[in-house]
Amino acid sequence: MNQPYRTIIIDDELLARERLLKLTANFPQCFNVIASAKNGTDAKEKINSLKPELIFLDIEMPGLTGFELLEQLDSMPMVIFCTAFDQYALQAFETHSIDYLVKPVRLERLEKTVNKLIKLNGNHNSQKLLEAIKEMSAEKEAKKMTSITVRKGEKLFFIKLEDVLYFEADAKYSCIYTNTEKYLTELSLTQLETKLPDFFLRVQRGIIINMDYVENVQKYFNSRYVITLKNKQKTSITTGRSYKDAIKSWMGV
Rank of each mutant, 00 (worst) to 15 (best):
I59V: 14
I59S: 08
E60F: 04
E60T: 04
E60I: 01
E60Y: 05
E60A: 09
E60W: 04
M61S: 02
M61Y: 04
M61K: 03
M61C: 03
M61D: 03
M61T: 06
P62A: 03
P62W: 03
P62H: 02
G63D: 08
G63L: 07
G63E: 03
G63N: 05
L64M: 14
L64P: 00
T65P: 00
T65F: 00
T65S: 15
T65Y: 01
T65I: 03
G66Q: 06
G66H: 08
G66D: 08
G66E: 05
F67W: 09
F67C: 04
F67K: 06
E68Q: 15
E68G: 04
E68V: 13
E68W: 08
L69P: 00
L69W: 11
L69I: 10
L69R: 11
L69Q: 09
L69F: 10
L70F: 07
L70K: 07
L70R: 02
L70E: 05
E71P: 07
E71R: 13
E71C: 14
E71N: 10
E71I: 12
E71V: 15
E71M: 07
Q72I: 02
Q72C: 13
Q72D: 13
Q72T: 13
Q72N: 14
Q72P: 08
Q72E: 14
L73Q: 09
L73P: 06
L73I: 06
L73G: 05
L73S: 07
D74G: 03
D74N: 15
S75I: 01
M76D: 11
M76N: 13
M76L: 15
M76Y: 15
P77Y: 14
P77M: 10
M78F: 10
M78P: 04
V79G: 06
V79A: 01
V79T: 10
V79R: 09
I80L: 03
I80H: 02
I80N: 01
I80D: 01
I80V: 15
I80M: 03
F81P: 02
F81N: 07
F81T: 06
C82E: 03
C82R: 04
C82L: 01
C82N: 13
C82M: 13
T83F: 11
T83H: 11
T83N: 11
A84G: 12
F85H: 15
F85I: 00
D86H: 09
D86K: 14
D86E: 08
Q87N: 13
Q87A: 03
Q87S: 10
Q87I: 01
Q87K: 14
Y88I: 09
Y88E: 04
Y88H: 15
Y88W: 08
A89Q: 12
L90Q: 06
L90Y: 14
Q91H: 11
Q91R: 15
Q91M: 14
Q91Y: 11
A92L: 12
A92D: 06
F93T: 11
F93Y: 14
F93P: 09
F93M: 12
F93V: 14
F93H: 10
F93L: 13
F93D: 02
F93Q: 07
E94Y: 09
